[in-house]
């Protein structure tokens, strides 16, 4: 009942926004040359669905994000586990992490353009660098949250520390790690698009740059619309998976790092 009302209000909000934009454009209050009519953008967005070039560029961006995220997870989760279980490792590496983490990933873009001959590799490298941090921090955070009693229970049954990590620590840190993946995914998309805008190559960013230089604002905004929808979908799918998989775990890890 209330949920239906909420959805209805949301739909009205979106529809109202589109109508207002359309009206502002048609009456000339907003120059439709500067910001195209809402209807133009929407039909443009519909047309993009049949545009093979656009779809393949979207595919490029998404696959670099996915590869980058996987690589980042392969590095950050084991590292975070090591740091979270061995205090000496954590104390030694912590200062390095604290110094490297705030470096904005884009500051490394010119360097990456030198180091990697293909733009694609440079892009993935930057995605890995950026996504590592939320994954690492959330893994650490999750491991710190493990109930010591659960670990001691296992130890009292004679399990070694490897089994404790495998059977208790990692499963209870899993919800935090998943939250890390969700945060990392949204950052990865931002970094991927940024690299494409600056360094070229392939991807949504390149598609948008080309459309902008051809002065096709409607195409630019239509592509932006799709990218926003993709970001929204990925985020809500991951959030849904999180709450489905880890129903036992109510507390969400803080949206810590970007």
């Amino acid at each position: 009942m209330t949920n239906a009302r909420r959805t209805l209000r949301g739909v009205l909000g979106v529809a109202g926004f589109l109508l207002v934009m359309e009206a502002l454009g048609r009456t000339g209050i907003i120059d439709p040359y500067l910001i195209p009519l809402a209807s133009t953008i929407l039909t443009g967005a519909a047309r993009l669905l049949a545009n093979g070039e656009f779809l393949s560029q979207v595919g490029v961006t998404l696959s670099s994000c996915a590869i980058g995220l996987l690589l980042a997870a392969a590095v950050a989760v084991p590292l975070g586990t090591a740091m979270g279980t061995v205090p000496a490792v954590e104390r030694s590496l912590r200062p390095l992490v604290e110094f490297l983490r705030p470096i904005p990933s884009l500051a490394l873009l010119p360097l990456a353009m030198f180091l990697f001959l293909s733009g694609e590799q440079g892009k993935i490298a930057l995605i890995v660098y950026t996504s590592c941090w939320p994954l690492l921090i959330n893994t650490l955070y999750g491991l710190r949250d493990v109930d010591p009693l659960a670990k001691e229970t296992l130890r009292s049954f004679g399990f070694g520390s490897y089994d404790v990590v495998r059977l208790v620590s990692l499963p209870s840190a899993a919800p935090f790690i998943t939250t890390g993946v969700r945060i990392a995914a949204s950052v990865a998309l931002i970094v991927a698009v940024s690299v494409e805008l600056v360094a070229g190559g392939d991807g949504i960013g390149v598609f948008v740059t080309q459309a902008a230089s051809g002065n096709r604002r409607d195409v630019v905004l239509a592509a932006t619309l799709w990218t926003g929808i993709i970001g929204l979908l990925v985020n809500s799918l991951l959030a849904k998976a999180e709450s489905r998989l880890f129903r036992w775990h109510r507390a969400r890890a803080g949206e810590e790092a970007l």
Partner: peptide
């Protein structure tokens, strides 16, 4: 309720994409 979906959407757009425009 009215504005949440719009804000969520704008939050999901990677802001760099709008720089050309």
């Amino acid at each position: 309720d009215v504005f949440s979906p719009l804000i969520h959407f704008f939050r999901s757009v990677p802001p760099p994409l709008l720089i050309p425009i």
